[in-house]
Design a protein around this nucleic acid. Sequence first.
RNA 1: UACCCCGUGGUGUAAUUGGUAGCACAGCAGAUUCUGGUUCUGCUAGUUCUGGUUCGAGUCCAGGCGGGGUAACCA
Length: 582
Amino acid sequence: MSTGNPTNGNTTEPPPGEPLDFVRTIVRDDIRSGKQGGRVHTRFPPAPTGFLHLGHAKAICVDFGIAEEFGGKCNLRLDDTDPGNEKQEYVDAIQEDIHWLGYDWDDRLFYASDYFDQLYEWAKLLIQKGAAYVDEQDVATMRAQRGTVLEAGTASPFRDRPVEESLAQLERMKRGEFEEGGAVLRAKIDMASPNMHMRDPVMYRIKKIAHNRTGDRWCIYPTYDWAHGQSDAIEGITHSLCSLEFEIHRPLYDWFLEQIGDIHRPRQIEFARLNVTHTVTQKRKLRALVERGHVDGWDDPRMPTLRGMRRRGYTPASIRNFCTRVGLAKFNSLHEIGLLEFSLREDLNVVAQRRMAVLDPIRLVIENWPDGKTDTLDAINNPEDASAGSREVPFGREIYIEREDFLVDAPKKFFRLAPGREVRLRYAYLVTCTGYETDDDGNVTLVRATYDPDSRGGNAPDGRKVKGTIHWVSAEHAVDATVRLYDHLYAVEDPSELESDDAQDGDAWERGLNKDSLQVLTGCKLEPALALAQAEEALQFERKGYFVLDSKDSRPDALVFNRSVALRDSWAKEAAKLGATS
RNA sequence: UACCCCGUGGUGUAAUUGGUAGCACAGCAGAUUCUGGUUCUGCUAGUUCUGGUUCGAGUCCAGGCGGGGUAACCA
């Protein structure tokens, strides 16, 4: 997948043709004009404070994708400047998930903490230049002094303390001689700036917490603003791509680099983060869903985390394709989840092995089939891929069919089984319904039919047309399984709309959850070949959807399958119309 | 309310930089089909508004309207 360009050193060629999004246009123009020596070097900088989700997938595709397309490189950098929330588990998971998505950083795995020493030296440099100072006020005071978006802030009494004093106090901060919150290092910029981030932002704060990588060597840690741009500079990043909310940080990003002076100057470019209907892509909200038990964990198949989607049966290609379809812009957009589902079906359609599985079984007895006789029929594994070959499927006198494929009183357009009607059993025989039985409540318990002995394989001997084909599973050979049907996490299209109104009710968005996002079906009847299903093997249960063996809960003697996505169902639309008009 | 960013069919995203508004998804209609799947064909539908510059404006200018972001020692 790598399109690296080692022979060309640091010269790169823009990709040919095709309209480019605004970021790629900038990158291409920079290459053409020779900026950054024609080099492209990006980075993906996640904080190791949670698992990667669909929103990250977009950023990964942008960061790694652009580097790849232009023959450049992309670093993986763990932005570990907030010890306490960071965990090694996340560091490992992030790497695993990026690899799974299909990207790689070679030997360029970095941590912001790799630069703590350099950052400290630069901090002293800024103090010496009179561009930073140690402030010993408490948080609340500083907050009050910052002013508001409407009013200018006021200067800290420490703002103009002597350079030597700040230098000495910073050293004391580093040695742990202050309590947490006792002092911070601040950039000296402009307390009246209309941009709040320029009102003497904090560069270092004290946290007496051991760091995942640096242990207890430090008790002062750089803030995002002080760490990020400098890390980019150190790594020789050319284009530092991030989301829109950092737009207002850009003046600060540039200011720090300007102050340091003679170092590499990356360019920050912001683009819109990914929003998808019927789900959320914010770490905070996903965490709440897990902690409040609305889902079974970060890898619940309903979660838009990469791990959840993987378990659900999403493929790396489908996610990557979705991300390129979604595009890159500065407009805050909300993408239909249908596009994600389309991307999944598109990929699965060509790779999934077809199998037959009856999810809501009802017995069908073929009255003229000899008792005890078993036939073995040939079934195609994948009509989209001849090389997938075929398999054998056993057939007998009693089979299971889908409850919804039989109707006592069927409308004309219902091309399935009903008294007196003929239907094809996929890859098997043509059968005609001769009757049915019900229980006391009127529920159908059994369907009776006769088969046409000359229709083996499913072809009518006289060429008569049989419009309907239904799937089935031999009762004698059926394998039992639990099947989990997943639907959208949220019933509402845009969960973010729920939280806006009432500030008191910060968790209002949870009320938009889809109560039926998980439906567990037990006693499903599968064809024998499904007993051999492997984790992450793409499967299509014919006429029902794409499924995958659950990688966590399935056992050989208690199979569990997850529905990745349903098939498009034009009959459902038709049926809805019929229902609506009658 | 201040500052910054952004407004193109239902959704999202293009338009050779001032010259025929294209593509994908969704929707609708039809064809094909041993999956009501797939595939194929056709259709519906759009430049936020008002002025200005120009032979010509989605594109440039001014103003309005609308949406988003920003007042953590999170990133």
